[in-house]
């Protein structure tokens, strides 16, 4: 459980997940922000106004229909708590995460880890892009991993072989 050991339960994760219908239409942001902390870069980074917040210490709310899956919030979030999930492709789901480690090669096969750090499936690195955070001098690498269908909500990290 999050308050005990930093691992979200299945219910925690589902509560943050975009509806299946939306995921089928293409990449969409999933904001795994659990605590009311004084922070708003995701709101400011969003070009469509999909992410809103009542006050600085509120948990961000996202309108999944307004989200265009641009990943700017993924790069902006200081907590590295946002991932893009995409269930629109037949050959597998896509997950895009911020990645502050030596970068993998496109096409590389990796072991995909879930919120507990357990290997749940194999994945392929599909794309690596560098997007600006709020501080434009800082570009954060965003890695897109192709995972088997149905794994978009669980895969949040990967291990190189």
């Amino acid at each position: 459980m999050l308050p005990v050991d930093g691992i979200p339960t299945k219910e925690d994760i589902l509560a943050k997940a975009p509806p299946a219908e939306r995921m089928k239409k293409g990449a969409v942001a999933m904001i795994e922000c659990w605590q009311e902390i004084p922070c708003n870069p995701c709101v400011v980074s969003c070009p469509t106004g999909a992410i809103t917040m009542e006050k600085l210490t509120a948990i961000p709310q996202i309108d999944f229909d307004k989200c265009i899956g641009c990943a700017l919030c993924v790069a902006a979030c200081p907590g590295l708590a946002i991932a893009l999930v995409d269930g629109s492709k037949e050959d597998g789901d896509r997950v895009s995460i911020p990645y502050e480690f030596p970068l993998p090669e496109v096409g590389e096969t990796v072991d995909c880890l879930n919120h507990e750090g357990r290997v749940v499936c194999e994945g392929t690195i599909e794309k690596v892009v560098h997007l600006p955070a709020v501080n434009k001098k800082d570009k954060t690498p965003i890695v897109t991993i192709k995972v088997p269908k149905g794994y978009a909500l669980q895969v949040r990290f990967f291990k190189r072989r």
């Binding site: 930093g6 659990w34 907590g79 919120h115 357990r118 949040r156």
Partner: peptide
């Protein structure tokens, strides 16, 4: 902050 903890948990660091 939980987000700092989740970062290390998903990498498999035991807590």
């Amino acid at each position: 902050y939980w987000v700092h903890v989740t970062k290390i948990r998903r990498m498999g660091i035991p807590l």
